[in-house]
Design a binder for these strands. Structure first.
Lengths: 350, 350
DNA sequence: TGCGGAATTTGTAACGATATATATGGAGGT
DNA sequence: ACCTCCATATATATCGTTACAAATTCCGCA
């Protein structure tokens, strides 16, 4: 029902009832259509908006004319007049090292946004400035109609601010705030729970997990799932200190290698990031150990990478593209009107 | 000094016969500053633009006032009035499987764009529509001031169209068109040339290369570099048919595995993509061969991935983030004014 | 005293769309 | 005939900014 410019075959030169200027072709505006149909600009505007105040026959006539001249509304003018921007801001931390994390999500988001009037704008967040800055800027200056971001924290400032401002947003990950809000999350509790169970079932007796930085909510989910499993089974465990899923891969490798060389080494690893998982593998390899034999590893898979990695390891899949699709979808709902918050929350199952 | 009535802390709905808006504090506009300084709106506008027609002292006074109230120009209004959008469109194919290809480039671009008034907008290109569609749409409807895209073809339609339209753009990869145009490329010729030389120096006598799809210019650069090296050295070679760097990883793996099982198998592989390289490695592994011994592989590295991959392979680095930085930088130059084209071209060395 | 003219500043009209208020025309009732 | 009322359509004001033309001040100098 919208947004097609694929018209453009070449209907120009032949017809030539050019009402106004002969010069190439200026962008058609409402005025163009008004002159073409003999109606007033206002009428044309309403007709294109399918306002029932305008006679059905007139609406159709106007819409036909608009299609014929390839009319597309000027977004700047719409934006100035209505205050709506038709923009959705995705706040992205360019330093997120996670392989393809951003692109997968973007792929999903653009897929959902296709056919809507919304544009996806990448708003970078630089780690040398407070996390909330880009959010403040967007809201305060009406740079977008909605915001998407990830790496949510339990008492996330951005969420608090956006809730307070009543500004539409969907974040990837939950908070622990009292006020409910829209989000899309992955069931990281079950991820680590299942991962631990798998390792234990394979015979592992001392599990080692690398978690995201503590400030993120999913750190706690992962920790909790892991702890529940190891307690249920009563096996040994340790949680990486000093390194996280955000650490440089080399640091992860060195750390794991060092730990493996110490007494009473872990025999099962859980890793929620692809790059860190590769680092764990390389550490194991470099010590002459064999994965799947001396040591086991369960990793989160977010791309096709591990289908090609040898030796094969166990993985549990998280579909970030689907997360992106959902986030955009929920945001559209949220912007469209007052939907109950609980319909704007989703946890993707493992 | 403070004119007020717009100052408010909390305009309740109690009386509100006066002004009106419930919003906490309305966004400051030129008018706000005009009233604040006692000048005309026009003067304020020019002063903020540092127009030398306005007295230096006035300019400073206005700029101070603007800073004080936190004035930011309304982009929609500017855009409507001037026709400039302050937007740069990055056309991205969401199906590009290359790991992190997009994010690396985006990282570089946003770094360059930081501090400029430009926003980076992701314009997806869906493979079920002609490549030129989004470009046409952007130019025709003035959706951006400049365009960035990749995967350039020897006689790229997008380039031809944009040149014809006089629309600023920078692409990743060159064309073979007569008209010069801005681009950023990587020296893929030298990449494959050096890769082949390395393999031959290590004792390989039959090289196998996987190339990008033939329609891309860098297919030819890679092929040429490769051919030059194998001819110089007089070793056997073959070029993958049916599979390309865009093929699904599983397809690449199966194909390579099949070839390795045939008589007279290759003993050296060159691969310009990370995922395909992983696929080649897994094929080799699955046949019980040893990389670095029975068979060798040189891959292009665009992320930190191969630092963690075992066994270690030879890689040659391409800095996509730097490419993104450069592309954005050249585009800014191009949009700023008439720079000689040869200053808007860059080939990143191997 | 007045006048040319540089140095400043100001007023007005757009840009293209939409919200609000106002007109037009005819059908229907009295 | 007159008036009301509904269905349509039009006119006008406005969003915030900038281009262009016009006005104002303040000199020095004849």
């Amino acid at each position: 029902m919208s947004l097609d410019d694929a018209e453009d075959g070449r209907p120009q030169n032949t017809a030539g009832p050019s009402t106004s200027n002969p010069g190439s072709h200026r962008k058609p505006t409402l005025k163009t259509i008004a002159e073409l149909t003999g109606l007033a600009v206002t009428t044309v505007s309403r007709a294109l908006g399918d306002d029932p105040l305008i006679a059905r026959e007139t609406r159709q006539r106007v819409q036909a004319a608009a299609a014929q001249v390839g009319y597309l509304p000027d977004r700047a003018a719409q934006r100035l007049r209505t205050g709506r921007t038709n923009v959705i801001s995705l706040i992205l931390d360019p330093h997120e090292e996670i392989l393809g994390y951003g692109t997968s999500m973007i792929r999903g988001m653009t897929a959902t946004l296709r056919g809507t009037p919304y544009h996806l704008v990448i708003t970078p967040h630089f780690s040398d400035t407070p996390q909330i800055d880009p959010v403040r800027h967007i809201v305060h200056n009406r740079m977008a109609d909605g915001i998407l971001f990830s790496r949510t924290e339990p008492s996330d400032e951005r969420v608090k601010f956006l809730l307070e401002a009543g500004f539409p947003f969907v974040c990837h990950g939950r908070t622990e705030l009292a006020t409910p809000h829209p989000y899309v999350d992955y069931d990281n509790y079950t991820f680590t729970y299942q991962a631990a169970k798998k390792l234990i079932a394979s015979g592992c007796r001392r599990l080692f997990i690398i978690l995201p930085p503590e400030r993120f909510t999913f750190h706690h989910h992962m920790r909790h799932g892991f702890m529940t499993a190891v307690r249920e089974e009563g096996v040994g465990f340790e949680i990486a200190v000093d390194i996280t899923l955000d650490s440089k891969a080399d640091a992860v490798r060195d750390h794991v290698a060092a730990r493996l060389a110490e007494p009473d080494p872990p025999d099962g690893f859980i890793c929620g990031g692809e790059v860190s998982a590769m680092a764990v593998m390389s550490a194991i390899h470099d010590l002459g150990l064999t994965i799947g034999q001396d040591v086991r590893l369960v990793a989160k898979q977010t791309s096709g990478l591990f289908d090609q990695v040898r030796p094969r390891i166990e993985t549990i899949y998280e579909d970030l593209s689907e997360a992106g699709r959902l986030m955009a979808g929920l945001l559209l709902k949220r912007m469209a009107g007052a939907t109950p918050v609980d319909e704007l929350q989703a946890v993707l199952e493992v």
